[in-house]
């Protein structure tokens, strides 16, 4: 039952007292798609979402939903379901009354409202808590009610403004997966704003990385991770080692190996090569030039910190967790890239 509509943000600009919160943001969401906007705080991701909701006026630019220009339409006529960071439930209403709030505004009869709210609360797994007030529910339950309330009005677009950031780690992953399940079920076009890269990668069809009001890259999670457009994206999404190397056009020499370069890399001279921890290996070698600084066991995997040699930055290597015990601080090792494509940037 896909009833999603396309969303188009065109050249949005917004300035707060001289600071560009949005600097010409253009973003397209396909019908039914879930796009996550990811970036550090102050990058403009929340401003973008609020402009789409109508809670913020862009200085210039256009907001279109389903082909209709909504730039000048006020929030209450935009038909958006929104879930806030926290504390957005009306405290004087029960969970059910919260969910029915939007339905009541749409002049639905009490019988119809009741059916719909029961259905929505069941969808988010809260059938047992319909008559509870916000202060009687946990943070996770409150966010579920907020989600049910936003979806109950069958909005054109679902907006999620860091809905998980106030929750405990465990509840966060659980609710994250559930949001994705529900979103796929109802098929509503969704914009999800977060500063947590793991969350964005796990939930979204496509992830947009923002910085200083600009969209740096918009791509599917795998592509964003394996082919970052620049070093900011590479750094922000996943862990990255910065290694000195020499660029030779389509390849680069680094750590004694030749690595294929990703598009957009610097093509000549001394460069910084960005290599993921899982794209490096370490082996015990009494004649090796690298030295183990520390090793740690992280459950599913292990991590070894290695100094490749004098004057070089330490690097992080991912190893199987069973191998952690093989490396003690001070051990001599050999460090080798596995040869996966990497990004090289000019040394600044």
């Amino acid at each position: 039952m896909t009833r999603g509509v396309a969303v188009q943000l065109t050249d949005l600009r917004r300035t707060y007292s001289g600071v560009n919160a949005l600097d010409g943001l253009t973003l397209h969401l396909e019908p039914g798609e879930l796009v996550a906007l990811l970036g550090p705080s102050g990058c403009g991701k929340t401003t973008a979402l609020r402009c789409l909701a109508g809670l913020e006026d862009p200085d210039s630019g256009r907001v279109e939903v389903g082909g209709k220009d909504l730039t000048k339409v006020s929030t209450n006529k935009r038909d958006m379901g929104m879930v806030f960071q926290a504390y957005s439930l009306f405290p004087h209403l029960t969970a059910r009354q919260n969910v029915e709030f939007g339905l009541q505004l749409r002049k639905q009869g009490s019988e119809q409202r009741r059916r719909r709210s029961a259905e929505m609360l069941e969808l988010v797994g809260l059938s047992a808590h319909v008559d509870k007030y916000a202060h009687q529910m946990s943070g996770g339950q409150q966010q579920r009610v907020a989600l049910a309330r936003a979806l109950a009005i069958e909005p054109q677009v679902l907006l999620l403004d860091e809905p998980l950031s106030a929750l405990d780690a465990k509840v966060r992953t659980q609710l994250r997966d559930e949001i994705r399940r529900i979103q796929l079920e109802v098929g509503t076009t969704t914009l999800f704003v977060t500063h947590d890269q793991e969350e964005a990668l796990a939930i979204a069809d496509r992830v947009g990385v923002m910085r200083s009001g600009k969209l740096l890259q918009l791509a599917a999670p795998q592509e964003l991770y394996s082919r970052p457009a620049d070093d900011f994206v590479a750094d922000f999404v996943g862990l990255t080692n910065r290694v000195v190397g020499t660029s030779r056009g389509t390849t680069a020499e680094a750590l004694g190996a030749s690595l294929p370069l990703l598009p957009g890399s610097a093509t000549e001279g001394t460069v910084t090569v960005l290599i993921r921890p899982e794209h490096l290996t370490v082996t015990q070698d009494a004649q090796g030039s690298a030295v183990v600084i520390s090793s740690s066991f992280l459950g599913a995997q292990g991590r070894v910190v290695v100094s490749p040699g004098e004057d070089l930055q330490q690097v992080l290597v991912q190893v199987p967790s069973a191998a952690v015990a093989d490396f003690a601080p001070g051990d001599r090792v050999t460090l080798r890239p596995v040869g996966a494509p990497a990004l090289a940037v000019a040394r600044g």
Partner: peptide, 8 residues
Amino acid sequence: MSGIRATR
């Protein structure tokens, strides 16, 4: 552009 918010 004078927005709805600014008016309010």
